[in-house]
Computed example of a mutant assay.
Amino acid sequence: MTGAVADWLGGACLLAGALLSLAAGIGVMRFPDVLSRMHAATKPQVLGVLLLITGLALRLRTGSDLGMIMLVAIFQLATAPVSAQMIGRAAYRSGRIDRDLLDADELAGR
């Protein structure tokens, strides 16, 4: 009985992760500026991938698979925020953002 519950939870996580990843992709295509696109590319996408990974872990449940899934999760958490930071900084330095949209501008003096 526990396997069936884990399979259902895994399926729900897979579905939720797929929907969040789809929302991230739509946001990247539809949002007007770099900062909005950067937000869409990182926040829902990372959560979507983590839900997909959780769903896979609940469905597979073997030691070697769980180890590989954990490595993918760690790599995703380490790279997505750093890449978004670098994209945002490059867009700021190249003047491709509307500075009127910023609430605070910590890079103005640099």
Rank of each mutant, 00 (worst) to 15 (best):
39 H>C: 04
67 G>P: 05
60 L>V: 13
108 A>S: 12
64 S>R: 09
109 G>A: 12
83 S>P: 02
90 A>P: 10
66 L>N: 03
42 T>G: 05
54 T>I: 14
108 A>I: 09
5 V>Q: 08
68 M>N: 06
26 I>H: 01
82 V>P: 06
10 G>Y: 06
32 P>D: 07
12 A>W: 12
20 L>V: 12
36 S>D: 09
82 V>F: 12
78 A>P: 15
10 G>V: 11
71 L>Q: 05
80 A>I: 14
1 M>L: 10
52 L>D: 00
65 D>F: 15
20 L>A: 11
75 F>M: 09
60 L>D: 01
67 G>W: 15
96 R>F: 12
46 V>N: 07
109 G>F: 06
78 A>L: 15
68 M>V: 12
15 L>V: 15
76 Q>R: 00
91 A>C: 06
71 L>Y: 07
75 F>C: 06
64 S>M: 08
41 A>C: 13
101 L>W: 02
39 H>A: 03
27 G>C: 05
14 L>H: 04
16 A>N: 04
21 S>C: 15
29 M>N: 02
52 L>A: 08
69 I>A: 04
24 A>T: 14
52 L>M: 13
5 V>G: 00
110 R>V: 15
87 I>G: 03
25 G>L: 07
60 L>W: 11
20 L>M: 14
85 Q>R: 06
72 V>Y: 03
67 G>A: 12
107 L>F: 14
62 T>V: 14
41 A>G: 15
68 M>Q: 11
24 A>F: 11
79 T>H: 03
13 C>S: 13
13 C>F: 15
11 G>A: 10
79 T>D: 02
76 Q>F: 09
2 T>Q: 07
90 A>F: 09
61 R>L: 03
5 V>Y: 07
100 D>K: 01
63 G>L: 13
92 Y>K: 00
91 A>Y: 04
85 Q>G: 08
80 A>V: 13
107 L>N: 01
86 M>G: 00
77 L>S: 03
39 H>F: 07
1 M>S: 12
21 S>R: 03
44 P>M: 06
80 A>Y: 13
92 Y>M: 00
42 T>I: 11
63 G>A: 11
89 R>V: 08
40 A>E: 07
79 T>E: 01
29 M>Y: 10
110 R>M: 09
84 A>I: 11
50 L>P: 08
87 I>Y: 04
71 L>C: 08
65 D>L: 07
33 D>L: 01
49 V>W: 08
40 A>T: 05
35 L>T: 06
91 A>F: 04
92 Y>G: 00
70 M>A: 15
28 V>P: 06
70 M>F: 14
109 G>V: 11
66 L>K: 00
15 L>D: 03
51 L>R: 02
88 G>C: 04
50 L>A: 02
